[in-house]
Structures are given as C-alpha cells and as structure tokens.
Amino acid sequence: MFNGIRAIMIFAEDPEKSARWWSNILGSEVHLDVDGDAVYAWLDVAGVEFGFHPLDEKRNRRGGSPVPYWAVDDVDAVRQRLLDAGCTHHRGPLDVGDGTGRKIAQLTDPFGNVIGIDGF
C-alpha cells in the first residue's frame, strides 16, 4: 500500500533561496519550475524530492507541514554542521529509547522550517 516517501514539501517565503541553502548542505543540484512570479524549487536526495513551494499563510503557512527526518550516521556531527550553517536548536538530541543508541534531534533552518535528523 505505502511504498516509502516520494516527496517532502516545505512552504517557504523564497523557495529558490531555501533550496539553494539546502543544496549547499546536502550537495545536491537545485531544480526550478518557474510559473510567472511563482517558483517551485527542489532537490533530489536519495530518491526523495525535497521541494520548496511558495508559502501562503492562509493555506500553507511556514512551519505548518510535517517535520521531515533525514537519516544520518552521526546525529551529533550533522547537528553541529547544521548549527554552524545557520540552523538553530529546536529540540533534542533525544534518545529514542530502543536500546540501540539511536537518537533524534530537530533544528530550525534559517527560513523558519523545522527539520529532523535521525541516527546514532
């Protein structure tokens, strides 16, 4: 029935600027679809479309979407990299409690979107 995540859409004031910032973090090319003044920008990362859509505070407000979690090898190292790049602390790191040492953390990117990281 469900076959994994196909796309994660983030609503952003400036989709292209958000996508370019994330492309530097993730090392992925920015793709653009321009329709008049509206720009939808996205990255293809590990088979998932990480998209940035123009926000609409009435229907699709900033930070109003689910929190995407990126699988990472080292939560502490990736968290520090994101903080150094301009993210701010939101929550965690937290031990998931499954006995494996797995933990999660949430950060807010420079555009007000909360993202998560999940790993060890």
Results as ranks from 00 to 15, higher is better:
residue 28 S to F: 00
residue 109 D to L: 11
residue 77 A to F: 04
residue 51 G to A: 15
residue 38 A to T: 11
residue 84 D to P: 03
residue 99 G to T: 05
residue 111 F to C: 03
residue 110 P to N: 07
residue 52 F to Q: 01
residue 31 H to N: 15
residue 80 Q to L: 11
residue 36 G to V: 11
residue 2 F to Y: 14
residue 74 D to Y: 06
residue 28 S to N: 06
residue 108 T to F: 00
residue 71 A to D: 14
residue 95 D to F: 03
residue 35 D to S: 15
residue 76 D to F: 03
residue 43 L to A: 04
residue 3 N to V: 10
residue 81 R to M: 12
residue 12 A to G: 05
residue 40 Y to Q: 04
residue 52 F to G: 01
residue 46 A to N: 13
residue 33 D to H: 14
residue 32 L to F: 07
residue 21 W to I: 05
residue 19 A to R: 00
residue 38 A to N: 13
residue 88 T to D: 06
residue 76 D to E: 14
residue 9 M to L: 13
residue 20 R to D: 14
residue 99 G to C: 02
residue 73 D to P: 01
residue 4 G to I: 03
residue 21 W to T: 01
residue 93 P to I: 07
residue 74 D to L: 06
residue 80 Q to C: 06
residue 78 V to W: 09
residue 69 Y to P: 02
residue 46 A to K: 10
residue 95 D to M: 09
residue 69 Y to H: 10
residue 65 S to C: 08
residue 40 Y to I: 10
residue 90 H to P: 02
residue 10 I to F: 11
residue 120 F to D: 13
residue 27 G to W: 03
residue 28 S to C: 08
residue 113 N to H: 12
residue 86 G to Q: 07
residue 50 F to A: 01
residue 4 G to R: 12
residue 58 K to T: 14
residue 39 V to L: 04
residue 94 L to I: 13
residue 59 R to G: 04
residue 22 W to Q: 00
residue 36 G to M: 07
residue 92 G to K: 02
residue 94 L to D: 13
residue 33 D to L: 12
residue 67 V to T: 15
residue 67 V to P: 03
residue 22 W to H: 14
residue 63 G to K: 01
residue 80 Q to E: 14
residue 82 L to T: 07
residue 97 G to H: 10
residue 110 P to Y: 08
residue 67 V to C: 10
residue 19 A to D: 02
residue 110 P to A: 10
residue 64 G to P: 04
residue 32 L to V: 13
residue 20 R to K: 15
residue 118 D to N: 11
residue 78 V to P: 00
residue 56 D to Y: 06
residue 107 L to R: 05
residue 110 P to Q: 08
residue 86 G to W: 07
residue 117 I to R: 07
residue 37 D to E: 15
residue 49 E to D: 10
residue 112 G to N: 04
residue 120 F to V: 09
residue 112 G to S: 08
residue 113 N to F: 07
residue 55 L to W: 05
residue 43 L to S: 01
residue 82 L to P: 05
residue 63 G to D: 01
residue 68 P to M: 06
residue 75 V to R: 01
residue 27 G to F: 04
residue 13 E to P: 01
residue 32 L to Y: 06
residue 80 Q to K: 15
residue 85 A to C: 11
residue 24 N to V: 02
residue 91 R to L: 15
residue 69 Y to E: 02
residue 46 A to T: 03
residue 12 A to E: 04
residue 63 G to C: 09
residue 104 I to A: 10
residue 114 V to P: 02
residue 28 S to I: 00
residue 32 L to D: 02
residue 91 R to V: 11
residue 88 T to Y: 02
residue 30 V to A: 03
residue 8 I to N: 07
residue 115 I to F: 12
residue 95 D to S: 13
residue 13 E to N: 13
residue 115 I to R: 00
residue 22 W to L: 12
residue 104 I to N: 11
residue 14 D to V: 03
residue 59 R to A: 15
residue 97 G to F: 07
residue 7 A to L: 05
residue 109 D to I: 12
residue 82 L to C: 13
residue 14 D to I: 03
residue 67 V to I: 15
residue 76 D to M: 10
residue 60 N to G: 08
residue 84 D to Q: 12
residue 48 V to E: 00
residue 65 S to G: 13
residue 23 S to I: 04
residue 37 D to M: 08
residue 87 C to T: 09
residue 65 S to A: 14
